[in-house]
């Protein structure tokens, strides 16, 4: 520490040039709320930090495209998203969840790009965005690529972003007519803690029959995990007590949580079950 070089390029192309060496010791920083913590703990000590601070005009935006998809620049802050009218309309679950993320001081500086790139399974945005079918744009000097969030998270603090790459945009596809969704954040220590279990549930109800369901759990597992087996139980069925119970039991069965300070494997499996049930009960009422 101390020798770290701090760079503040003014163009995205410059950032890509700097990163093009592929040196893993070079790190991008957006809001810095996550990176500063791991640096302070001595877990990571980059020799160059590339701040995206001066790329506000290029990377801080929330718009919708012609197809009705929402497009979010990676430097958009969590607070921007929380209060944005378009997000409230197109992704109200996200706006609601953001009011329970960290605290206002953090939300004013933390970016959505940093939130995803951090690859921490305890965050609240990844499961929601994943359940909504979001995709991310990853750029480098070599070119751009789009990736479904389902393929983005690779492991504990590990994502698909290569050292020469940078995440620039998040695209939330237009949700089909009749889609309802919810997110439950469950904490076991103080109420402002990171979640012990997060459950995002989205599905479409047609005449009481559920379809197109997307159930994603996070925090309990090392990466946000979509529970396809649970979705099979839900899809095509009445969202009644029996279906919900079966889905919850299935979630218990397939979830593979890790034990940590916030709960044992047994307890986290129980909590996955309980909160998948609670989430579905909520959707059944809507």
């Amino acid at each position: 520490m101390g020798d770290t070089l701090w760079l503040e390029p003014e163009k995205l192309s410059e950032v890509k040039d700097i990163l093009s060496s592929g040196d893993p010791e070079i790190r991008v920083v957006s809001g810095g709320t996550a990176l500063s913590l791991i640096m302070k703990q001595g877990m990571f000590d980059p020799n160059k930090i590339v701040s995206l601070k001066k790329l506000q005009s290029e990377l801080r935006y929330i718009t919708s495209d012609k197809a009705g998809n929402v497009r979010i620049g990676s430097m958009t802050t969590l607070r921007d998203l929380e209060v944005d009218a378009l997000i409230k309309e197109k992704a109200p679950v996200l706006s609601e969840a953001l009011t329970h993320v960290a605290n206002p001081r953090i939300r004013y500086v933390a970016s959505i790009g940093g939130n995803l790139s951090h690859g921490d399974a305890h965050l609240d945005m990844p499961p929601i965005l994943m359940a909504m079918g979001a995709e991310v744009k990853i750029e480098s000097a070599k070119g751009d690529r789009w990736l479904d969030l389902k393929e983005f998270f690779k492991g504990y603090y590990e994502t698909a972003i290569e050292p020469d790459e940078i995440l620039t945009e998040i695209m939330i596809p237009k949700q089909a007519e009749g889609i309802v969704g919810t997110y439950i954040k469950y904490t076991t220590l103080s109420n402002d803690d990171w979640p012990t279990v997060g459950v995002a549930a989205f599905l479409k109800k047609t005449d009481g029959i559920a379809g197109d369901s997307r159930i994603v759990i996070s925090a309990a597992t090392d990466i946000p995990t979509q529970l396809f087996d649970v979705q099979h139980i839900i899809d095509g069925n009445q969202l009644d007590k029996t279906t919900i119970q079966k889905a919850a039991e299935k979630a218990f069965e397939v979830a593979e949580p890790l034990e940590d300070l916030r709960g044992s494997v047994w307890y986290k499996k129980e909590m996955v079950k309980v909160h998948v049930r609670k989430a579905l009960e909520q959707l059944a009422k809507e």
């Binding site: 913590l37 220590l189 103080s190 109420n191 402002d192 803690d193 990171w194």
Partner: peptide, 11 residues
């Protein structure tokens, strides 16, 4: 303080 939590306003 990330892992040892104390009561917050929400508690």
């Amino acid at each position: 303080m990330s892992d040892y939590k104390v009561p917050s306003f929400k508690d």
